[in-house]
Each structure stands twice: as structure tokens, then as C-alpha cells.
């Protein structure tokens, strides 16, 4: 299938959308991003982002391209899935159409912000090298990957917030995307819990519960209870009154760029 068709079809529906976004958004961004950053070397392939991830502090352009890579991944995933008759049960079709809509908007937003610096859409392998071979036939496999992508997205944006502290407007945009991903993640997880009759699979993350493991563990696992040096299990009105499970649910945790790219890497068949 031709993943680039989506942009053709969007532009047919709203031919002015790209131009409008490019005008308003790009200007906002470029006013904030220093010209030095904008002129910096532009990564054009995924591999170069991976290399950048090992640098001490990624540039704003790197972070936005990192985000764009994840949004390409999500958008392509839902675009393909929503077209396959019978994959998504009718009762959930609106949910996944809505998620796809947001991912398309995020791709557009980031592309417009990055302008010529935007990386190209890679070719994806959603079977994850064969691990999820039935992803386009089995809703359970599909939705497990959906939850993994959404929770990875939430953790990935959170992990970059600190790196954007010097670029306040971009930080705010990142937070505005971040909470949308969290809304998606919550419902997708709850649908899984409902399907599997598993009351412990909730909209929020208990301990580090979820599949696959790499999405929920990492340097700061989802089961972490210490925040800004404060152990939340030992707080008054918490200790002895609120379960440790609930304490872990109350805080989502970040993933580093490196950890995210390790998770996302096998989905990427070829960088363009």
C-alpha cells in the first residue's frame, strides 16, 4: 500500500490546510527556535536520530524529528488498520478513527513546524520482524500494539520535556500532544482490560503492567515511586492507607530517547 496517499487525500479534502499550518505554526516555532538551531545539520534518516540520541542534549530540531518519527509510526499504523474490513470490531471503530485523526494532525503539525528539516516518512514493518505476524487479522494483537505505541508515546514526550525547558513554547506544544496520547492510551488499555476480563488492566499503569515489557520498564520503570527525591509511598495520608499499586498508577514515568528508539527500531523497515 502507498502510505503517501494519505497526504494526497488530505490535501484534496482541505487543500489549504498545509499552507495554513505552515504559515501560522512554522512562524511561531521559528520565532522561538534560534536560527543557530534551525541552521544546524538536519538529520534525514532515522539512523542519524539514533546517533543523536546518544548526544548529551539533543537539539530542538532533533527532538521534533524524534517526535515526528513516532507520529509517523502511529499514524501509518492506524491508517492501515482502519482500512482493513473486520479487523476492528464495529463498537470500537469510532475510537480508532478518532485516534488516527489526532495522529494525522500531529504529523502535520510537526512537519509544518520543521519545514525543510522534517525527516521523511520511513517504511514500517508492523509485524515487528514477524513477532506480531497476525497484526492485521487479529484484533487482540492489533490492540496490544496500539497500547504499546500510545504508552510509548506518552513516555517519550515526557522524557523530552526537560530538554525543552529552554524553548517554552515548544515545551507547551509537546505537553499538548503528550496529554492527547495519554487520553488515547487510557481508553485503549481499558478496552484490552474489558476484552480480556482483566480488571487489573486499567486506563492507568499499575506497577509496570503492560506488553511488551520494554515499553513499561527502562531506567525509570513505571513502577517507580520516588519523585523529585520524595518517596510517595511514605507520605502522610498515603502510607498504610493507599496501596502501592495506586501510588505507582498516580505517576507516569519517562523513557529516554535511546530507550524509545530501541522500542521503535524494529517497526522501522527502512528509513527514507
Amino acid at each position: 500500500m502507498d502510505i503517501f496517499k494519505i497526504f494526497d487525500s488530505i490535501q484534496q479534502v482541505d487543500g489549504d490546510a498545509a499552507g495554513r499550518l505552515a504559515h501560522t505554526t512554522r512562524r511561531m516555532f521559528m520565532n522561538r527556535v534560534s536560527s543557530k538551531v534551525a541552521a544546524a545539520a538536519v538529520p534525514t534518516v532515522f539512523a542519524s536520530i539514533v546517533n543523536k540520541a546518544y548526544a548529551a542534549t539533543p537539539s530542538v530540531t532533533d527532538i521534533l524529528n524524534f517526535a515526528l518519527t513516532l507520529e509517523y509510526l502511529e499514524e501509518t499504523f492506524y491508517f492501515q488498520a482502519n482500512k482493513i474490513p473486520g479487523l476492528i470490531p464495529g463498537e470500537y471503530s469510532l475510537v480508532f478513527q478518532q485516534i488516527e485523526k489526532h495522529e494525522t494532525q500531529h504529523v502535520y503539525f510537526l512537519q509544518s513546524a520543521l519545514g525543510a528539516a522534517a525527516i521523511k516518512r520511513p517504511t514500517f514493518d508492523f509485524t515487528y520482524g514477524g513477532a506480531f505476524a497476525d497484526i492485521w487479522h487479529n484484533f487482540k494483537t492489533f490492540i496490544a500494539v496500539s497500547a504499546a505505541l500510545e504508552d510509548t508515546g506518552v513516555r517519550a514526550y515526557k522524557g523530552q520535556a526537560g530538554n525543552l525547558i529552554g524553548a517554552p513554547q515548544i515545551l507547551e506544544y509537546a505537553l499538548q500532544v503528550h496529554s492527547v496520547e495519554a487520553r488515547h492510551a487510557s481508553l485503549v488499555r481499558r478496552i484490552i482490560g474489558h476484552m480480556n476480563n482483566d480488571p487489573m488492566m486499567k486506563g492507568w499503569i499499575t506497577q509496570a503492567k503492560g506488553f511488551p515489557e520494554a515499553v513499561y520498564w527502562g531506567a525509570t520503570p513505571e513502577s517507580n515511586v520516588v519523585h523529585a527525591t520524595i518517596d510517595a509511598t511514605k507520605l502522610p495520608e498515603v502510607m498504610g492507607k493507599i496501596s502501592q499499586d495506586a501510588v505507582t498508577e498516580a505517576f507516569d514515568e519517562p523513557l529516554t530517547m535511546e530507550e524509545v528508539l530501541k522500542i521503535a527500531g524494529p517497526f522501522i523497515a527502512k528509513s527514507m
Partner: peptide
């Protein structure tokens, strides 16, 4: 950031 996504 850890809290806002839980609120969402």
C-alpha cells in the same frame, strides 16, 4: 509531566 498524563 508525570502527573498531567495521569490526569489525562
Amino acid at each position: 509531566g508525570k502527573i498531567v498524563s495521569v490526569e489525562a
